[in-house]
Amino acid sequence: MIPAPFDLVTADSAEAAVAALVEHGDDAKLLAGGHSLLPLMKLRLAAPAVLVDIGRLRDRSFVRDDGAHVTVGALTRHRDLETSPVLAEHAPLLAAVAAQIGDPAVRHRGTIGGSLAHGDPASDLPAAVLALGAVLVAVGPGGSREIPAEDFFHGFMDTALHADEMLTEIRIPKTAGAGWSFQKFNRRAQDWAIVGAAIQLGPTPRVALINMDMQPLRASATESAVAGGASPAEAAAVAAEGCSPPEDLNADAAYRRHLAQVMVRRGLVEAAGRSAASGQSTVT
C-alpha cells in the first residue's frame, strides 16, 4: 500500500499537461481523480516516475447543452454527471450509470476522462459512452482530434489515446426521450460490475456490455436482433455472442455469459417500458 517514489508536476492547462507528457515521455502519467491510478501505484502494479496532475483544471469540468449534443468536460466528476439536470433531460443513461459507480467518495473524486482513458473493461462509463454513440475529443502536441467511442477501446486497459494525448471532452448525442436502461450486477453496492449492460434505444439501438471481454464492447448480435424487431428474450439470448469473458473469483466465463443474457433481457424490457412511457416506439 505504499507507492514507489515519483515526481509530481501540476498542470494549469490542458496544453501544459500535454507539454509535460511530451517532456517526460513514457515515464509520465496524467493524474485526474486518482481513483484508478493511485490504487495501482499503491499495490506497486504501476510505478510512473512522473505524475502530471490535471485534477485542478476546473475549466475542464462541465456539462453543457450544445444543441444537438451535450458536451461533458473530461475532468467532470462522476457525482456531477449523476446530478446534472442537462444529462437528466438529454442523456439520462449517463447520469444513471455515474450514480452506480463505487461509493460517494469515489464518485466525488473520479472523473469521466480518467475512467474512459483507463480503458478497464469492468468500468461502467465506457459502456455508457458506447451505448450513447459518444465522440471523444483528445488533444496532443499536434492539436485536437475526435475519436468515436466505438473506435476508442482497443484492449485490456488499452485505448486509442497516444501516450502524449489528453482527453478533453466527450460529446453525447441527445437521446430525445428514447428508452434506456442500465443493469449492473455486483455483490456489494461499491463494487465493479461482475457483468453489466448499458442500453440506449433510438434510431440506432445500442447495447454495451461491461466485463464481458478484454475491453468494453457492444453486443452487436443483440443490437441487430433488436433492430430487426426481436423480443427482449430473443435479442438477449445472443448477448454474449462473440465475447471472451474474463474469469475471476466472482464468475467464470459460462456464468458471465449467462448473466449477460439476464442483464440484457431485463434491460431491454426496462428500456422499452421507458420508451413507451415517453411516447417513443420501442425500436426507432
Binding site: D103, R187, R188, A189, L249
Partner: peptide
C-alpha cells in the same frame, strides 16, 4: 492468497 485486498475480500458496508 488470491484476494488479499479489500477490493476482492468483500467486507460489507451499510449499503448491503
Amino acid at each position: 492468497i488470491k484476494n488479499p485486498s479489500l477490493m476482492d475480500y468483500l467486507v460489507p458496508s451499510a449499503a448491503e
